[in-house]
Simulated scan of single mutants.
Amino acid sequence: MTPGIGESWQRITGWLATHAPATHRDVNPPAAAADLTALTGHGDLDLPPGLRRWWSLADGIRDRAGASNSLLGFYRPLSVRESLEMRRWFVGEQAKVVVQPDPECEVAGAFAGPYSHAFVPVGGDGCGNNLFVDLRPGVRRGCLMQWLKGEAVLQEPLWDSVADMLAAVADALAHPETGLRRTGYRLVPEVTPHGHLDWEIRQLPA
């Protein structure tokens, strides 16, 4: 059974406070209600309870020059305002409906060509790639997928929910020998000399 979001977040912030204090200091306070209202009003979004719960605990992590703060593997957690700004950049001020060329790509967890109005960015890497919650309809609604610059969405979901994502990150921090597993490699937490969290890529045995 997946731990609750509050439990996983407490494990994560506890680890950061002890091992990566600079990143811990960069964790934002809870999101403002007005910011959440602005985001949900951009396309009449119905955010999953898990995403609302996470943002009620922390409004992302600050973007600081020279620090990765990439808590979510390659991605820094975005604030609600940053999520809205990124959505506006992709789908416009009025969140126009984006139709996928293939009808099979209109369900959650499927590949996608253009950036969908049903994507809610929650993580960014500063290089044009982002991690988003997929709000397309279907049994996988709420899963976490990657938008890769120049490739669109051509990979399977990384996690089935925000709760799964935070539980996986908490486990990876507590058990670095396992880390975050990806296809062909794993991400192992490390801390910079200035106390910021980063991840080392280690190839898996063939």
Rank of each mutant, 00 (worst) to 15 (best):
M1H: 06
P3D: 06
S8D: 01
S8Q: 04
S8F: 00
Q10Y: 00
R11G: 08
I12D: 05
T13F: 03
G14V: 02
W15T: 03
A22D: 01
H24G: 05
R25D: 12
N28I: 07
N28M: 07
A31I: 02
A31D: 04
D35C: 02
T37K: 13
G41K: 04
H42G: 11
H42V: 10
G43F: 03
L45K: 15
D46G: 09
L47K: 04
G50D: 14
G50N: 06
L51P: 06
L51C: 00
R52T: 10
W54E: 04
W54S: 08
W55L: 02
L57A: 05
L57M: 08
L57N: 02
I61V: 14
G66P: 02
A67Y: 05
S68F: 05
S70A: 05
L71E: 01
Y75S: 01
Y75W: 01
P77V: 03
P77C: 03
P77A: 07
R81D: 07
S83P: 00
S83M: 01
L84M: 01
E85H: 02
M86I: 03
G92L: 02
A95P: 05
A95I: 04
V99I: 13
D102V: 03
D102H: 00
V107E: 13
V107D: 00
A110R: 07
A110T: 06
G113Q: 08
F119G: 11
V120S: 04
P121G: 09
P121K: 09
V122D: 09
V122W: 00
G123P: 07
N129P: 14
N130D: 14
N130K: 12
L131H: 13
V133M: 14
D134E: 09
D134Y: 15
D134C: 11
V139D: 15
R140L: 11
R140G: 12
G142K: 06
C143K: 06
C143D: 06
C143S: 11
L144K: 06
M145T: 09
Q146S: 11
Q146I: 14
W147Q: 07
P157S: 07
W159G: 12
S161C: 05
V162A: 14
A163Y: 07
D164L: 07
D164W: 08
M165E: 13
L166E: 12
L166F: 06
V169S: 12
V169G: 05
A170N: 09
A170S: 15
H175R: 13
P176N: 04
P176D: 09
T178P: 07
T178E: 13
L180Y: 01
R181I: 09
R181G: 11
R181V: 15
R182V: 03
T183L: 14
T183G: 10
Y185W: 13
R186D: 03
R186F: 06
L187W: 11
P189D: 10
E190L: 00
E190G: 04
H194C: 10
L197D: 07
D198N: 14
W199V: 11
L204I: 11
P205L: 13
